[in-house]
Amino acid sequence: MHVVGQPPAAPARGAPGLAPATGPARALEPVLRPLRAYGEYILAAASALGVILALWAAFFYAPTEAIQGDVQRIEYVHVPLAWVAYLAFFVVFAASILYLWRRDERWDLIARANAEIGTLFTTLVLVTGSLWGRPVWGAWWAWDARMTTTLILWFIYVGYLLLRSYTGRSEGGARSAAVLGIVGFVDVPINYLSITWWRTQHPAPQLPLGGEPQAPPAVVETLLLALLAFTLLYAYLLIQVYRLHRLQTEAERLRARIESA
């Protein structure tokens, strides 16, 4: 996950006023440059192939679940989506701290890109969960602890994106968003805990998350494949969204320079 741990180095044409590429990023530039040029295509191909393979495995390789039937196959999409969403929100959290600490705008753009991806994936998690819940539980929605937490998470990060849209590309907005990115993520475990306790007296059906300890190997394999494929897809999306934000910021910067020249 080098994409996350290390912000892609600044483009060579970095405008003055933009923080210059930091030490390690610049030193690695000769290695990163070709890797970026071709690595992205490799990543795109790998994630496309991975998702296709995972879907094939979900439909044809994994066995039909005895009680739930084919509906259970949605798990192979639902679980990886949830994993990516949580991963993205963790990156928002980490990048927000780094942004407040280092004040490098690239961390802010990474946080923003991850919040967008995480919110999209959380939406899909809620939709796939509902689609699964309707036939299995007989209801689109149940106030299960995990579902409720996911829903609240969704509200927190939609709030994050709203805040960003209201504050534009200002430094003050970036700092406020970083604070929300930190508080919001810390809130997740407390939320989960409180909702679990809240529901203790009314046990709800569990999501089939790693449900049976003796799951058939084909189920485990399919799930692992799907997890890998969606993580690659996440990495690819992150690079694209991050670059989009970078270019938008750069365009706004250039426009401002022309206007004030």
Binding site: I152, F155, I156, G159, L162, L163, Y166, T167, G172, G173, S176, L180, V183, G184, D187, I190, N191, L193, S194, I195, W197, W198
Partner: peptide, 23 residues
């Protein structure tokens, strides 16, 4: 800090205080 102070405040605060309200 934003133009939409009144709208944004509850939208940001309510989800975060869920645990305290439940408790």
């Amino acid at each position: 800090n934003t133009r939409a102070r009144e709208v944004l405040l509850p939208l940001l605060v309510f989800p975060l205080i869920v645990p305290v309200v439940i408790g």
